[in-house]
Design a protein around this nucleic acid. Structure first.
Lengths: 138, 138
DNA sequence: GAAATTGGTTCCGTTTTAAAAGCAATTTAC
DNA sequence: GTAAATTGCTTTTAAAACGGAACCAATTTC
């Protein structure tokens, strides 16, 4: 993930940060699966390597999409949370999920969930954003 | 771009195909810039290499997101067009554009365009989809 | 006190990517 | 009619990204 920007196009700038095979899966697990710790995020079905996970988390923190804080109940644990910018990635996850449900061979149950979120339109997204704000921003 | 699927998650499946730094920029240029030919697509501000462009176009055709056809007016030219699946990527482009406009240092004018499309909501997207259908599906 | 758990780091081999040059077929300019 | 330009790629070479496995010190659990 290089840092040199290629153009001022908003789509391009987004892709420079989240345009890869892993970043949005990390966000997905923070948003939908309630994961907060490194070892939890390591356990995704897709099997991210610890090296890649560590690097992505670092960049996401640096770029203001996540925060990293100490777990008060366990000194070795770090807590990763979404920032407002991270929560605002939700519409992207939703549209990706809707497209994948429609055009790829997706798991039935997960496809249904994705379609429901998409069918709910902006109101459903706003509700979920608010819920995420409570969980992640406190 | 490996072909082995990592999970049945719709988001993950979408990212396997379009989760990289280039694919959605190609779609963007087909959808917003009216580009149709290889050399036109090569001229993006971001400077994709001809090797990467060729490989991406091939997979997108294979996966049913684009079509490739001969240009009747010029034997050396090929015409790339969006399929229905390609046109349905528009909401993803729109949300990516909106996020980039809000959280990255985007060009002012392009940010305005992106925000307008997002502000128009689903009706604006549907209108643009119909317009793209006319242009690409004929 | 030994074993397990924590968030990573290090190493190494493979895959992906960028940059540049090249190419045969065709079209355009003169 | 011929030389130059244009077409969609392919080839080559080198650099960067990535995956897998092992490893680590600090801490927590048993």
């Amino acid at each position: 993930m290089s840092t040199k920007e290629r153009s001022g196009c908003p789509i391009s700038l987004s892709l420079e940060l989240i345009g890869d095979r892993w970043t949005l899966l990390i966000i997905r697990d923070l948003a939908f699966a309630g994961k907060r710790h490194f070892r939890e995020l390591l356990q995704s079905d897709e099997g991210i390597s610890s090296r890649t996970l560590a690097e992505r988390l670092q960049t996401l923190v640096d770029e203001g999409v996540l925060t990293r804080s100490d777990d008060p109940t366990h000194r070795l644990k770090a807590i990763y949370r979404l920032t407002e910018a991270g929560i605002d990635l939700l519409p992207i996850l939703a549209t990706l999920g809707a497209w994948g449900s429609k055009y790829r061979k997706a798991d039935k149950d997960l496809a249904r969930v994705a379609k429901e979120l998409a069918a709910g339109g902006e109101p459903a997204l706003e509700r979920m954003k608010k819920s995420l704000s409570k969980e992640h921003l406190g």
